[in-house]
Design a protein around this nucleic acid. Sequence first.
DNA 1: TGTTAGCACTCTTGACTATCGACTGCTAAT
DNA 2: ATTAGCAGTCGATAGTCAAGAGTGCTAACA
Lengths: 342, 342
Amino acid sequence: MLSDRKKKILCAVVDGYIDKATPVSSKDIQQEYLTECSSATIRNELSALESMGYLIQPHVSAGRIPSEKAFRFYVNELAYDYNLTVAEVEQIERHFSRKISTLEDVMTAVTRIISDITNYTAVVVKEDMSDTITAIKLLDLSNGKMLVVIVTDSRVLKDGMLDIPDDFNGQMVMQAERWLNKLFVGKHVSEFINFNYPYALVNDEFSQFNALFKKIIDVLKKQSLFGGMDVETYGESKILQHSEYYDARSAQKFLTEIEDKEKIAEMFTYDGGENGSVTIKIGANDSAPDGCSVVSTRVSLGENISGSIGVIGPMRMNYKKVLSVLDKISEIVIDLIGKENK
Amino acid sequence: MLSDRKKKILCAVVDGYIDKATPVSSKDIQQEYLTECSSATIRNELSALESMGYLIQPHVSAGRIPSEKAFRFYVNELAYDYNLTVAEVEQIERHFSRKISTLEDVMTAVTRIISDITNYTAVVVKEDMSDTITAIKLLDLSNGKMLVVIVTDSRVLKDGMLDIPDDFNGQMVMQAERWLNKLFVGKHVSEFINFNYPYALVNDEFSQFNALFKKIIDVLKKQSLFGGMDVETYGESKILQHSEYYDARSAQKFLTEIEDKEKIAEMFTYDGGENGSVTIKIGANDSAPDGCSVVSTRVSLGENISGSIGVIGPMRMNYKKVLSVLDKISEIVIDLIGKENK
DNA sequence: TGTTAGCACTCTTGACTATCGACTGCTAAT
DNA sequence: ATTAGCAGTCGATAGTCAAGAGTGCTAACA
């Protein structure tokens, strides 16, 4: 257990490093954070904290920088004492004052505003928890094609298009619809991910519906790829504003890593958590990208749809600001979704 | 008009600069491109080409680098003499051997493969040329909601979802459908972009359909934002592999610029051109991003749907390779689309 | 007249050095 | 336990210098 003063000093190092991106010296701390004791005392404490694994000294005549362990400690100690400026709150509200109708619009707006205010890459992950098929509809488009609509209990529709075979008449379309409903309704979407067209299922009587059957499985498969997850990101290039990514190699490593939406989804939904709960992952040990942190909040996006909103950025991240922004935004989003569902 | 030797030398400078990214000296040219005359002769020619605006000398004891004018000349002179290696052709074909069903799948596959082979950012733009509404369907999903499906002649469907008002019955849904069809069928989608809900249109008799009407206008508006354009990009981070974007500032400038999909769409569709025609834009004067080039090919993606596929990268781009890759890919895509439509 | 060898000149690049200054750790005094 | 003071370490910065790359020009030559 750390003494009160050690905690203060440790947090001062982290704050200073987050602010300046350079090693923090005992003098800096004495002048800006802890005027009540001398720099020599702080030096002793720093030395102790270093041997405890919280701090790293790049070289003997440099100040200290925080280790991963220090960042973990820091975010745990963190009091939510950062308050958004009036300008920032206004900026957020201005963004949301535009008419926003669909869930997709909300997601887009959220990524934009979070990224613009925090200057980190913003991520929103939408996750359909329940995807039981409740109905399948075939819609004759009167141009030789029909639209396949799959309705699930999470209000999500997955659709595909298909030619109507020449030998089909209206009667048969309806018959096909009945048959498909008998086959699929009540089943969960995930049941079809590893489905390999066992045509035996389709007996001779219905062999003319094979193409339809296949099409529907295709649609289901595609939609189930990420388990119904939808990932939206914005502000990837913001990483280049931060000094640890000034060189092309590390920047590219970061950008390539966050190109994989599936991995992103994992990082942001690793452990469920309830509405409003905040998760902070620090460094590769926490399954964040190397040298990075991931801060996310769980937000319910409707009945049976949960989501995560958050940012991904350098470990040296302004956690206080990010947390306040996420707090404010998730509040607005919950409000927005609530209203819509009412 | 340039002499033959001047042309040769100019192309040698461009080739050398594309290859090495450093100023090209008279000696380099003499050794690698033009052994039949001496470096002194080449120096004289270089000097002439510089005063003609084709070359730039960063400082007196450096070689020459090509100007925008030189790149323009170069791509005009360019013989399509680059041949893809066997490995590259195989790589392309491997990518396409996976089952690809929808147009979206094709677009995704195309961006991936182009970017991976060329190491530039790949772009595919899909453009619905004709969007006359042929039918509107309302589909009761039997969960209190209905799906609005708008069918246009370019086989594209735009859909939205809507609550069914409590006082609606099946009869009224059908009535609404009839009414909507009367209103919208035959009109072009673009007619509704600047539509501002003149509710006067909706007389008292049909006032209960106001919400529906509004919803449909919303869907049309959203889909018309880019004139029905769909932009897909891949490999944004590849820019960091190229030496002119080693520093964070220019890289960020590039990445921020290509974040605006609307601008991208403009760059890739500026002048129509027929199936297979190639456009190369060089530098800001050509409406490409500053210091960049845009190479694109027009490809028909189906009846009434045209598209552009291409890359965006540094002006110092391997045009020969890019052109060959685009050539091969567009050939495959045309083949694929053709088959599907058959 | 066009080409070329040779040379003087310019300017970048990299290596090396010296100096400065930022910090620390330690010691001894409080 | 705290702190002032000081020696010691090491990175950062600036300056110097030599090497090398590349040019332009001149004069000779085909």
